[in-house]
Design a protein around this nucleic acid. Structure first.
Lengths: 107, 107
DNA sequence: TGGTCATTTGGCTATATTGCCAAATGTTTT
DNA sequence: AAAACATTTGGCAATATAGCCAAATGACCA
């Protein structure tokens, strides 16, 4: 693997890593339906505001979401809608796993 | 967020997390073209065999790849091809980021 | 059987991530 | 200007992850 390829996979991994957390997946899913401010997300998630803020900054830092300040609130929304394709695939891995479990039980 | 939803996002995160590493993304990409044994992948990656083996076991444990023993070698291949959709989207985030950088420079 | 090759596992250290609290920053209201 | 609110940042302790070496396992060959 040459340097260039290495760099490419590192760049990709940064983005995937940013999504690799239940709370952040939830945020992405939520923002795919509607923009939300930090307080709204915090309420839904049930963690400390600072924790949620940090999750948001991780997603923002890799360009998955975008923020817009309105008064004293900060609204976040999805920047790249295709991120939702992720879910489709992840879901199909889960389904495939479940199906296999079933098969094993039937035997 | 209720318990059920929580569990769902945790299950999803496990799968995303399994891909959240440059080497593992490389492996997935490589296996999408052709099955490979541990030694072949190790050669391409340039890390310790044990390291590569552990990466493979992480991907396997969440059902992304599957292994098949042939003699003394173990061949791995992609179990859920749609995983490649990931790349398309990740790539478009990267492209979107790059485009924005350009825009900022033009001003 | 003994030796060699392919792979996995255990163990360890270094590094990264998470989440809370407290404090800082910035905005609106009184 | 002070108080109240929304959000971010710093700091810290707990936990998770990564990668190497060494050792164990399993298959094949002489």
């Amino acid at each position: 693997m040459d340097k260039k390829q290495q760099a490419l996979f590192e760049a990709r991994a940064k983005i995937v890593k940013a999504m690799a957390h239940p709370t952040r997946l939830f945020i992405v899913d939520e923002l795919s339906r509607h923009e939300k401010c930090v307080a709204e997300l915090t309420e839904m998630i049930g963690a400390d505001t600072s924790t949620v803020s940090k999750h948001l900054s991780i997603l923002k830092s890799v360009g998955i979401i975008i923020d817009e300040k309105r008064g004293s609130q900060v609204y976040y929304k999805l920047r790249v809608p295709c991120v939702l394709n992720f879910f489709g695939c992840v879901e199909s891995v889960l389904k495939s796993n479940a199906t296999e479990q079933l098969q094993l039980l039937k035997k």
